[in-house]
């Protein structure tokens, strides 16, 4: 359970885990690999690698566009997993494959878990697969000793949180707001009380994402949760520097260093 263990050791060493999201192949395969290296060299603890999808209904405009750029380069699951394979030549950072159900279903759930295991990625998060529909994938994940990350949302009832906690063999990914991915200026005022409630129901580590984008957000949350996830803020740097790939890695490195510093408790 490499992801869980990493969060545990991060927390024990006095920091909240820093999870970074990038879309595979945005803006191209080689740059994604460079970005992943920069993320890790500048303090990212866990990487979420996104598989592009034509209809990303849980994503705001920033990650939608990343998905479109990646699809224009014909990125698919095999190519994304190849990036992981290359990355693994140098780094042992835990990797979560992140995406929507249809591309996974088309690839074949068992084949997917086998291949995720083969390239030594460590877990999977399927954003449109609530526990009601996750039976098949959970079985396959268990068989290959991978981790399946479930979402908990501000709308989740106590009963659902309990169900998800019982099913999960990884951390709980808490969606900070009702809504889609994307940077937001403020942390939702209901988040902290919700985290308190969540902790009463589950003993699983909690990582919070959706809208988290600045050191200020990290400082507000770091003593309350086990990890924070940053996606759109990183993807925005890519979007703004498409003409200069060196600038992308440089700016992402700077951003990560700041966030990573803020993650220290």
């Amino acid at each position: 359970m490499k992801i869980l263990n990493k969060i545990k050791s991060d927390n024990e060493s006095g920091k909240v885990s820093f999870i970074s999201y990038v879309t595979a192949g945005d803006p191209d395969i080689k740059t994604t690999l460079d970005i992943m290296k920069s993320l890790v060299n500048n303090g990212t603890d866990i990487i979420e690698l996104g598989i592009p999808f034509s209809d990303p209904i849980s994503d705001g405009p920033t990650i939608q566009k990343a998905s479109e750029r990646s699809l224009k380069k014909n990125i698919n699951i095999s190519k994304a997993l190849n990036i992981v394979k290359e990355f693994r030549k140098e780094f042992s950072t835990p990797i979560i494959i992140f995406g929507y159900y249809n591309p996974f279903l088309r690839y074949g759930i068992n084949n997917l878990m086998r291949d995720i295991k083969n390239v030594d990625a460590n877990g999977i998060l399927v954003v449109d697969l609530p526990p009601e529909e996750s039976h098949q994938i959970q079985k396959s994940v268990n068989k290959h000793s991978l981790e399946l990350v479930y979402l908990v949302a501000p709308t989740s009832t106590d009963y659902r949180i309990q169900t998800i906690s019982n099913l999960s063999n990884s951390f709980i990914y808490l969606v900070s707001v009702t809504g889609v991915t994307g940077t937001r200026s403020k942390i939702d005022k209901n988040l902290i009380p919700f985290i308190k409630k969540l902790k009463k129901i589950t003993k699983k580590p909690i990582c919070v994402g959706f809208g988290i984008s600045s050191t200020k957000h990290v400082n507000e949350l770091k003593k309350k949760v086990n990890g924070i996830v940053i996606g759109s803020a990183i993807v925005k740097i890519i979007e703004k520097n498409l003409n200069d790939k060196r600038e992308i890695t440089k700016k992402i490195s700077n951003f990560c260093r700041k966030i990573s510093k803020a993650c220290r408790i």
Binding site: Y101, E132, Y150, L151, A153, T155, S156, V175
Partner: peptide, 20 residues
């Protein structure tokens, strides 16, 4: 009861929408 017509249908949405 699972919202299925045979194998079809269901509720493939993010957690946020399931309670609604």
């Amino acid at each position: 009861k699972n919202g299925r017509f045979g194998d079809y249908g269901g509720m493939f949405v993010s957690e946020t929408l399931v309670p609604a």
